[in-house]
Design a protein around this nucleic acid. Sequence first.
DNA 1: TTCTTTTGCGCAATCGCTTGCTCTTTTTAG
DNA 2: CTAAAAAGAGCAAGCGATTGCGCAAAAGAA
Lengths: 337, 337
Amino acid sequence: MKDSIGGNKKMTIHDVADQLGVSISTVSRAISGKGRISSATRKKVLDFIEAHDYHPNGIAKSLAQAKTNNIAMIIPEVKEVVAFPFFYMCMCGINEVAQARGYDMFVVTTSGKDTTRVKRLIDNNKVDGIILGNTHKNDVFARFLKSRNFPFVTIGSLEDDSVVQVDHDNKGACRDLTTILLSRKLRRIAYMGKADNLIVNEERYEGYLQAYKDNELKVDMSLVSRDNMTDAMTRKNVDELLKMNVDCILCQDDAVCNVVLQELRSRDIAIPEQMRVASCHNSKVLDSYYISISSLKFDNTEIGRTACNILMDMLDGKEVPGKTQLDYEVVLKESTK
Amino acid sequence: MKDSIGGNKKMTIHDVADQLGVSISTVSRAISGKGRISSATRKKVLDFIEAHDYHPNGIAKSLAQAKTNNIAMIIPEVKEVVAFPFFYMCMCGINEVAQARGYDMFVVTTSGKDTTRVKRLIDNNKVDGIILGNTHKNDVFARFLKSRNFPFVTIGSLEDDSVVQVDHDNKGACRDLTTILLSRKLRRIAYMGKADNLIVNEERYEGYLQAYKDNELKVDMSLVSRDNMTDAMTRKNVDELLKMNVDCILCQDDAVCNVVLQELRSRDIAIPEQMRVASCHNSKVLDSYYISISSLKFDNTEIGRTACNILMDMLDGKEVPGKTQLDYEVVLKESTK
DNA sequence: TTCTTTTGCGCAATCGCTTGCTCTTTTTAG
DNA sequence: CTAAAAAGAGCAAGCGATTGCGCAAAAGAA
């Protein structure tokens, strides 16, 4: 489909205009559909660019319109295998709707709290909006973006409800799961989590507490540990729990759950006969375990899609909801039979 | 740090020039370091833009230089949990060096063979180069990029050695693993894989065959299955293997391995006492299994870094190697004791 | 038929930066 | 001390689109 003019350079709007004997404004209007143009001319131009495979230069367009049609997703450089599926599927969801709505997606992976990469992206005018892949307490990225007054939405909740956020209902889900466990006459349910200032982990913990409250039961705080920052700590905590007449261990996520399962197995404790186990998130990673684990099921692709649609609506100047919560499913398997 | 001129609009090179009483070309030269400029003037400009937090508009720069400083990574919309870690870590590696070398990274997730999203990215002049996250036989993306004469490198091998590729030495790794198993007097090693036209799967299979050849042993082809496209097929194949006096099952990847492990466990077959099991790739997913699995260890982040460095060298006009193979590790664990 | 609207299209400015060229000033060489 | 060379900085023409404005032609109203 190379053009007759020859040379390897890509065709520009001038080439199209020249060969058609019209002005470049006419070509531009034909393509954008904006402005006054006769349908005959419009068709002539469109047919020509179709036949010659002409594509407007996106960079020039961006400059002229002060709009890039790019967004960026910020995700952590995670190392824990249970975190991969969440971010990956999220990313697929975002990309799906971004592409459908004419945007392309940058991804920036960041370790820790360094905003320089994100800052550069914005300073260089490379993106119109940003999706934050996860949220921390007093989130440094959210604070930065807000201070810049830059359009963004977070996946994960935030204390600051002036920022647009999309999230699974982690608290509600965890509450429901706990309630179901309680309804099975399990009373001494241990909770094992991390107080690592990820908001999702706060919410899950709150859900656990809420369920006890809703059922007018009192949680024995000696069954709660939130210091499972390392596998060693988790093993130690399991060890202690086993001395305390525990019915069930509810794990904040599959990473913790995995260690718990291994520890129980090394002690030949039968699940569910001697101990029930549940996790607050099905990352699919534990599907490979020899027993199926009760857990919560969230739609990770959908949360990406939703966040992206909302961001795009924002960019289109539409009104958007302040906070969106997605549905969840409580999935009971063998581990809590 | 808002500028005194007021208004919310970002500072441009003109603002800097005006306030400094120099021309815009001088500002441009001070920043780029190219062209003739006195070090005094240069410092004056640099100090000013530092103090006023000025950043050149990347879009304008791209237009003027016909260079975007963007690359794109193409990855599949995988669903299998074992695939997430590979692509995710790869992505982190790419992003790490891209950022360090002044580039930003688009990610496009694609299902199947549809090149339109990639085509659009190129047609719109949004990227300078592309990294293909995986390769298939007769790869449609590679063919497309090559036909366009667009700079790209693949992660994963390709028959066409005119394309620049980076890969783990899958064949060599799998050969070594098999050889070690053979050295343990295991003779009837079954191979379970998929003939799904992913090149990596071809290579692993070849490695297995090669090991037998190197050791002057003959492989019993009735122990080889490459039709494990579904879990059901895999279970059926395991079932048949068990009637055939097999020493060890070598799985193409952790997805297959997972099913094999579950199947063996449901039949109460003890590992490694009654059966040895190994996998050709440690996705970390099986780390949650109750027994540790012998497998190959590849550095997924490093392959991303390498590919990105090579692509960037290409874009800089440097000479680059046609094919780069990374090291691997054979990790023996309990499952083949 | 004549005057007013509307429509279609081109001109040229603009977006913010890079860079070849020119002119002036300074430095170096002979 | 003078001529040639080098250095420093500005002018202006790009890069490839968009878009406000103006003019001529066509359509509608009186």
